[in-house]
Amino acid sequence: MENVRILPTGDSSVSVEFGNEISEAVNRRVRAYRLVLEKAGVPGITETVPTYRSLMIHYDPFVIPYGALREKLEALLAQTDQVGIPAGLVLEIPVLYGGEAGPDLAFVAAHAGLSEEEVIRIHSSAEYLIYMLGFTPGFTYLGGMDERIAAPRLTEPRVRIPAGSVGIAGTQTGIYPVDSPGGWQLIGRTPVRMYDPARDKPILPEAGQYIRFFPVTQDEYDRILREVEAGIYTVQTHARKEG
């Protein structure tokens, strides 16, 4: 298959690279190929890690040495464009915008020359593709934010940003999964835990899914938070309408 490269990343993993750009089309092929590998069930493959434009494949060389793995991977490449990818799942993430939860909403609105309500409407009307997870457990690299609400990073990063904070940095938007320092403009906060090591499924989002934010009131935020803490809140999902 043209433009696909299988690159060794040491003696126990390879990176299969599908292109050199951040695009939904390239990312879709990464996901499709991952699905092909899952279906084929190649013995010796121990873990796969999808990223923007490549799939990292960890393997046990005692089960399948490099040469044999490469041949297998090359043979399976042809199926990438034939496999049917199921419609992406959209995770509905509640957000309390502005106020203490989103101290930079006013700045983002002023920077965009829009009202706070318009920023909220624009931010909560898109379905953001989760290109990949990385940086810290449960951090999603999202694509597809409307450039009208883009905003520069803070000149002085905050020392501690609470988990659940929703922010904007440049043309990116995202959620802080754990308390951490950071320089994103904070526009709101979700009571949903993207990451909880004690949970059966510690990390909620998966690469290839989509996130859609919906605004909630303080009362709704408090109610959802109580349900999250009691372990009874379920994030609403639906299959994305393609096209």
């Binding site: 873990e47 990292m56 997870l133 990385g134 810290t136 457990p137 449960g138 510690p202 990390i203 998966e206």
Partner: peptide
């Protein structure tokens, strides 16, 4: 900790 790199867990 193997199997969780796809979720960003080192």
């Amino acid at each position: 900790r193997f199997g969780y790199q796809q979720y960003g867990v080192p």
